[in-house]
């Protein structure tokens, strides 16, 4: 019998702590798959964030450092400078990357730091129980915006990928989504390109993944997928924002 689907070797054989339907698990699997295919695992050092993905080190079969909230790009910088031939990737949520860690992500990108960042944008603070994030959409109800996000008093949702695309040092930027197989495949291609950019020494690469949080959005997994399509994607357009060829 021909095996058509198997668990990537770089993905640990244990259940995750993620809620049913959460896209963190899909993202982990994609990274593991690419680590297998690109033979990165043996040279890889991951950085797990503060957020739901703090335990990423339990699921990916490579060396890991756990970083303080928002500081993953700085920690990644320290590791990559010490071991330029290592494959260094930071995994961050939107509270981590777009709020408390804005300085670190912008300057890592601006330096053209030769690292890869996987940015999971679920428009909410998952781990702490569903507070408003910088990426929370207008009118979106969270535990700290119970009447829905009010742009007048809280500002507009931040598009980090577009912001970083203004920086000349960046080698690769894309935004993907995991709401269906077609988009998962596209996101996997984006991740591959970001990882390849690092391997080729082109510099900073980030893939933003539009994600869900059924638990804190108060929806079933299926409803959360529909909500991504109807609400997230119009505000967070998908596609490549910078490719390596543009880097001079």
């Amino acid at each position: 019998m021909k095996k058509v689907f198997t668990r990537p070797r770089a993905l640990a054989d244990r259940p995750t702590h993620y809620c049913p339907g959460c896209i963190h698990g899909v993202a982990h699997r994609m990274i593991a798959q690419l680590m297998d295919e690109m033979e990165l695992t043996d040279r890889a050092v991951g950085i797990s964030p503060v957020g739901c993905a703090v335990f990423a080190y339990n699921y990916l079969d490579c060396d890991f450092q756990q970083a303080a909230h928002g500081r993953a790009p700085a920690v990644a910088t320290g590791i990559k400078r010490a071991w330029p031939d290592a494959f260094v990737f930071a995994y961050q949520g939107d509270g981590d990357l777009a709020s408390i860690g804005t300085a670190e992500i912008i300057h890592a990108a601006s330096r053209g730091e030769n690292i890869s960042v996987v940015f999971i944008n679920n428009a909410i603070y998952g781990m702490t129980g569903g507070q408003m994030a910088p990426t929370t959409l207008e009118g979106q109800r969270t535990t700290t915006s119970p009447a829905g996000r009010d742009l007048k008093s809280t500002g507009h949702p931040m598009r980090m990928t577009e912001m970083l695309a203004t920086l000349p040092g960046v080698a690769y930027l894309a935004r993907g989504s995991c709401h269906d197989v077609k988009h998962i495949k596209a996101t996997e291609r984006y991740l591959r390109k970001a990882f390849e950019a690092q391997e080729a020494g082109h510099g900073f690469g980030m893939v933003e993944i539009v994600a869900n949080c059924p638990t804190n959005w108060g929806m079933s997994p299926v409803e959360s997928i529909d909500w991504i399509k109807e609400n997230m994607l119009p505000y967070f357009p998908l596609g490549e924002f910078r490719t390596t060829e543009e880097v001079d």
Binding site: A74, G78, I79, K80
Partner: peptide, 26 residues
């Protein structure tokens, strides 16, 4: 060696964390 002027002391000490964790004198 590597000298890096970080964007802040917060970033600098976290770069130290990363490099120290990667096993070098920093």
């Amino acid at each position: 060696g590597t000298f890096l002027q970080a964007e802040s002391e917060v970033a600098a000490i976290n770069m130290v964390y990363g490099a120290a964790g990667a096993g070098v004198r920093v």
